[in-house]
Design a protein around this nucleic acid. Structure first.
Length: 491
RNA sequence: GGUCCUGUGGCCGAGUGGCUAGGCAGAGGUCUGCAAAACCUUUUACAGCGGUUCGAAUCCGCUCGGGACCUCCA
């Protein structure tokens, strides 16, 4: 078994042994959402992927500082010089103040992530809260000669930068091809070169979100905030930078360029990119309208969603694929995962009730646990981990049926690791989620099951079926087994 | 058009040279007042063609299909 963590680094395009700069500390920056509307399921997938990564690093004993930004500056609809920004546009549509839009969708974002069991980051900085840092960064870049000011806007000089550094290291592009392949977009007259990107944009007369700067009133460029904030909280070089695959170019490439221009070193050792969630074989996308909202799945919103799915089933569905592969959403795939998840969940409950047997069976619990660990250490391979967990499900069920027994040591290893991986690593539930409400329900259900049992012993099928059918209509399913009946809420 | 990724059984999805993941569905069985559930067992695969090799889903080439990025996007 390997005790070492290997990570697929997008920068080098290979799996590499993870060596943090200052162990046991790890710095991880993940690009967060632009809060001008609801996060969709594809956005959520990325945050769940990095939640898994964060959890595993923590389980390995690292002290992770996890920084994830909120983009609350109104960036323009496109790269043109004029135009309305997204947040202002939304504010106009909803008849709210721009900062109300930002607050509203930030709150919604937190709500969604909480429901889908993502652990909050250590620091969640906002772009508007770091204007000073961003302006400072622009100053440095200007002073080193890698940017130029035109009419109250500042642009990054990509061509100049490429004379000293390798523009395109991350995305594997070369600047000549980019130069020859660029399209002429309207409203980019100020740029010396189409590849140049804005560090600071002058605010037009009607632009609402604006801040003073040495170059006049305006707002920062999109790529800038991540550079400024990651440096502020994680240093000029840090361990992990993550985000969706679609941010690789130009966003992350520009981040690297800004950072190298300002600090003369590479900002990040390990770049991790989560792959896209697709719908109908196409990437989910806000702007294309090809998306599903997280709560559409939990509510069972027609016509796309056939029935309500629990957030944990959705999370499990995503974890059954590797974060680096595309995953296609379909109701067939989701309901398959839903069933699988329930089976796993039941085994997690059942393992607590198993008592050790006198004789050990041939199950090598330690080897099994090692396999689980190796799976996660191999670039956070949650699908392999889940396959191992289902091996354990078989063992648990065999023990439950008294067809097999484990000795005390085997059982302890099995139990501890099942709980570790299910709760802490995959984040599939809160172990302490039993509330006074559920205790109350447990008590009531035990009484009802007792009454039904008595009726069945009297062969009073009318009563026993009435209980079963009525509960069924409340989405409580009675399961008659060999050793009595159990119940489960179907949601 | 350029750059890159990908094509696995009915469906989803791992696997990068030999040891045929896993889940769902299907089939058979156990249990059972009936039903459901649960549990056990189990069939089916590597897009096509050619090459390298003792041996290829895995490496190489070509063909065909799907996708991402090149413009805001996780």
């Amino acid at each position: 078994m390997s005790n070492e963590l290997y990570i697929y680094n997008s920068l080098t395009r290979e799996k590499q042994l993870f060596n943090p700069l200052n162990p046991p500390f790890v710095g991880m920056y993940v690009c967060g959402p632009t809060v001008y509307n609801e996060v969709h399921l594809g956005n959520l997938r990325t945050f769940i992927s990095f939640d898994l990564i964060y959890r595993w690093l923590t389980v390995l004993g690292y002290k992770v500082r996890y920084v994830r930004n909120i983009t609350d500056v109104g960036h323009l609809e496109n790269d043109a010089d004029e135009g309305e920004d997204k947040i202002s546009q939304r504010a106009r549509l909803e008849q709210l103040e721009p900062m109300e839009i930002v607050q509203k969708y930030t709150n919604r974002f937190h709500e969604v992530l909480n429901v889908f069991r993502c652990i909050p980051p250590s620091i969640e900085p906002t772009a508007t809260g770091h204007l000073i840092e961003q302006i400072d960064l622009i100053r440095i870049i200007l002073s080193k000669g890698f940017a130029y000011e035109v009419n109250g806007s500042v642009y990054f000089d990509v061509k100049k930068y490429a004379e000293y550094y390798n523009y395109g290291v991350l995305s594997g592009r070369n600047i000549e091809e980019l130069l020859s392949g660029t399209r002429d977009l309207d409203g980019q007259e100020e740029k010396r070169n189409p590849l140049d990107f804005a560090l600071w944009k002058k605010a037009g007369a009607t632009h609402i979100m604006r801040w003073p700067s040495p170059w006049g009133e305006g707002f920062p460029g999109w790529h800038l905030e991540c550079s400024a904030m990651s440096t502020k909280y994680l240093g000029t070089t840090f361990d992990i930078h993550g985000g969706g695959m679609d941010l690789k170019f130009p966003h992350h490439e520009c981040e690297i360029a800004q950072h190298c221009a300002a600090h003369e070193n590479a900002p990040v050792n390990y770049w991790i990119h989560g792959n896209m969630l697709t719908l109908n074989g196409k990437k989910m996308s806000k702007s294309d309208g090809n998306f599903v909202l997280p709560f559409d799945l939990t509510n069972g919103t027609p016509p796309l969603v056939d029935k309500p799915y629990s957030p944990l089933s959705v999370r499990f569905f995503m974890l059954q694929a590797h974060y680096g592969s595309t995953l296609d959403l379909s109701m067939e795939a989701l309901s398959a995962s839903d069933k699988a998840f329930r089976r796993l969940q039941q085994a997690i409950k059942d393992v607590a009730t198993i008592s050790p047997g006198a004789t050990a069976s041939d199950f090598d619990a330690q080897e099994w646990a090692n396999n689980c660990k190796s799976a996660m250490n191999d670039d956070f391979n949650s699908p392999i981990l889940i396959a191992h967990l289902f091996d354990a499900v078989k063992i648990v069920n065999a023990c439950k049926d008294k067809k097999r027994s484990l000795d005390a040591l085997q059982l302890t290893i099995l139990k501890d690791n099942l709980n570790l991986y299910f709760y802490q690593v995959l984040g599939l539930d809160n172990p302490e989620s039993a509330s006074s409400q559920t205790e109350l329900l447990d008590g009531v259900m035990n009484l009802i099951l007792d009454l039904r049992k008595a009726a069945r012993e009297q062969k009073d099928w009318n009563t026993s079926d009435k209980i079963r059918n009525t509960l069924q209509s409340l989405d409580i399913v009675i399961k008659d087994g060999k050793d009595g009946s159990t119940w489960q809420i179907n949601n």
